[in-house]
Design a binder for these strands. Structure first.
Lengths: 100, 100
DNA sequence: TTGATAGTTCGTATATAATCGAACTAGAGG
DNA sequence: CCTCTAGTTCGATTATATACGAACTATCAA
């Protein structure tokens, strides 16, 4: 795995983005990335198996929400904030602004 | 069927709302209700079978997004705009504001 | 080169969701 | 009461997601 393909946000539908955000594990990842700025997969796993996390990161990447950069042995993830905000204005603000 | 139970928005999670909105049929219903204000189930079916539509309306109701009022033989649906806006500020604006 | 660490991929099991026909229910009107 | 219409419920099928162990890959460090 040399590096990841990240979709152009223009090719991401709102349905796709909403679906990616509708899972509690993934929403938790997104919230943590919003706070932390950048984090490895392991830092966000909450004790879940690696294969499950890998699946959720893949969904988030395919929905254009998360960017993953390979840094040595770790894969560092960030929210694609500006791009998502441009494509879906207000969506992340709304989703991240909600109280439990 | 005398009338429907509509959940208190406080009991609806953002995950639940996002999931309801992430299906293309349901998103289409929501968009049409946003424009039309109020519509019967049949007016929004786009040629789909009644049982399928009934399922999607149930999901939308259970996510607190749609209110259904029985008016004679028809069931009239509206978006629960103000309540949803209060619970998830900016969410519907973001979802409904997106171009194609 | 060996070992450890981080994460992916594969395969499979299980759960959840979508689709839709058929039978049913409720209200309106003759 | 009969019938039409609008929508629900049931049941079965199929599709899509989730979960996760096991085997694999890549990088780093000793």
């Amino acid at each position: 795995m040399r590096n990841y393909a990240h979709p152009d946000l223009a090719d991401v539908t709102i349905e796709h983005a909403l679906h990616a955000l509708s899972d509690p594990v993934r929403l938790d990842i997104v919230r943590q990335l919003d706070r932390a700025g950048e984090a490895s997969c392991a830092a966000l796993d909450g004790g879940r198996p690696k294969s499950s996390m890998s699946h959720h990161f893949r969904v988030l990447r395919s929905a254009g929400l998360v960017h993953t950069r390979i840094a040595g042995v770790q894969h560092m993830n960030t929210l694609r904030r500006e791009e998502v905000d441009k494509r879906f204005p207000g969506l992340l603000d709304a989703v991240l602004g909600v109280m439990g």
